[in-house]
Amino acid sequence: MGAFLAKRILATIPVMLIVAIIVFALIRLVPGDPAAVIAGNMATNEDIARIRTELGLDRGFFAQFAIWAKGLVTGDLGQSFFFKKDVTALIAERVGPTLSLAFLTIVITVLIAVPLGTLAAWRHGGWLDRALMGFSVLGFSIPVFVIGYLFAYFFALRIDWFPVQGYKPLSAGIGEWIRHLLLPALTLSIVYVALIARVTRASVAEALTEDYVRTARAKGLPESRVLIKHALANAAVPIVTVIGIGVALLIGGVVVTESVFSIPGLGTLTVDAVLARDFPVIQGVILFFSVLYVLINLLVDVSYVFLDPRIRY
């Protein structure tokens, strides 16, 4: 186990390094003189020169990357032009709402998607199965902001159940926290439920065709036990895998949902930073989300050891 963990953690290092290189290279993709573009139309030559030095655009690619990467390791993501603040501090300020939203969404999704997918697989071709598959393909097709505005229109504008916009931190009480987050979390969970219910259904349906399920039935076990202890237990690895991969989808959705419901999290920060061409912030946020994604999938990999005794490292 220890060796396995060490191996998996080491394996994330090249991935993180490549992410860092890609993120670093972004600024150099800007056509023409990046410093001039970033500074904007109103900038003086001095401004441009200052930005060029600050971003190290006057140095070579690798020389500047080394300086930048050294900062990363110590947690220094540079300075925001627009907010005039440390990027690390900015991210720390905004991370609460984003993680709250993502966490609530994952909880809602797993509670809905796994039982529904399992039942649909059990009654393959039945009404629940067809309804769930119909919902799933629709869930993949409606853009998350359209869902957001639909929910806002019906649950907040039409019937005044939830606030239309805004965010209350957990310190304001768990009731207020959930009341403000429920609509965004439901919005965001639609596509995630679609994905996970679909994979649960496919994996459980596949497990149900396996010989060991036939053995379980030949033992005279009730269907509920066959379904949960035999089929679902064997489908756990692909389901957990997709929950992990789906986090990428979730992060994309967070950016849009925060924008729709005006939640002051990292998503709105990203959009503001792009509109202001505030590259240090853009780079910092992307790095943060990528590290989060890689860490979650590291956890997923570790969970395999508990879900499937055949996987031993």
Partner: peptide, 24 residues
């Protein structure tokens, strides 16, 4: 595949947003 792993670790929408921000 190492390069692809890195690319896949950046959520698709964020990467697209960042690329548009850089490229115009």
């Amino acid at each position: 595949m190492r390069f692809m792993d890195g690319l896949m670790s950046i959520p698709a929408i964020l990467l697209a947003i960042a690329l548009v921000a850089a490229l115009g």
